[in-house]
């Protein structure tokens, strides 16, 4: 058995923040080492969920786009939404998932702008769905030591 990366990062963070930082005189370098330790705790948290949260989010965004196809009033946007909704993540490296996530979130912004200007019950419902996803996406990224 070998320690998994999240476990290692947590232990390394603790080592840096207590033993290493504690051995340094108070000052800039000591604070820098402590911050590196804090970063490692966050990276440990992020490592575990990095692929999962992107896969989940990309799936949610494609579902919203599929719902939106029949609501939007712009042909170009409708075509982009339809194409994105048909998409699928086939490369599960974090960088590839992040790339598709950024593309989907860019399209989400475009859809949100468009929907805000539509005057229909369906548009309001879609807008609520988008806000729900924005809250969910923020929760997916939440870090244990964040100030809020």
């Amino acid at each position: 058995m070998r320690p998994d990366p999240s476990r290692f990062l947590g232990v390394a963070a603790g080592h840096l923040m207590t033993k290493t930082a504690g051995a340094l005189p108070p000052g800039y370098e000591q604070s820098s080492v402590s911050v590196i330790g804090l970063m490692l705790t966050q990276l440990g948290e992020e490592f575990e969920r990095a692929a999962a949260r992107r896969i989940e989010e990309n799936r949610e965004l494609r579902r919203i786009f599929a719902d939106a196809v029949d609501i939007v009033a712009d042909d170009d946007l409708r075509a982009k939404l339809a194409e994105a909704a048909r998409g699928e993540d086939l490369n599960f490296t974090v960088s590839a998932l992040e790339q598709s996530n950024c593309a989907l979130r860019t399209l989400l912004i475009e859809l949100h702008v468009h929907v805000e200007d539509l005057d229909s019950e369906a548009a309001r419902s879609l807008e609520a769905e988008i806000w729900h996803e924005l809250v969910a996406s923020t929760e997916r990224r939440k870090l244990g030591i964040g100030p809020f």
Binding site: L38, Q42, T138, R141, K142, L143, I145, G146, P147, F148
Partner: peptide, 10 residues
């Protein structure tokens, strides 16, 4: 890292 997510939440 730390503040970006909290700022979205805010």
């Amino acid at each position: 890292w730390l503040m970006g997510n909290s700022q979205d939440r805010a």
